[in-house]
Amino acid sequence: MYKILIAEDDDMNKLLLRDILTYHGYSVIEASDGEECLKLAKSIKPDLIFMDIQMPKIDGMTVLRMLKDDSLTKDVIIIAATAFAMKGDRERMLSAGFDDYISKPIDTKQIPVLIRKYLGANQE
């Protein structure tokens, strides 16, 4: 079972993603700020992270850079899930090093498709 870390400070949005991921059979770990995300990412080593950008303590861009710079976590797939959805935001995120980008409001049906794109079929 793939482990997916959600880094998101908005409880409701965190809950939404968790429900979707759990429904599709993934193991979900949650972080409510950048610092917690960094800690959990290193200790649990998830297969994929959905990361908000605007977060307390450490913002998503900084967390991304720290994880990609760390040999322990550099191969983790990190997808930006953000309400920064103006023109150019997508390009900005991808060039910062995110593996992919989804804008809020998220397309709930796209979430499992996106995960399969990077991880393949879920393992039982």
């Binding site: 409701m12 949005n13 939404l16 809020k104 409001p105």
Partner: peptide, 8 residues
């Protein structure tokens, strides 16, 4: 951000 919850 709130629309994400409403729509999602």
């Amino acid at each position: 951000t709130p629309l994400n919850s409403i729509i999602g």
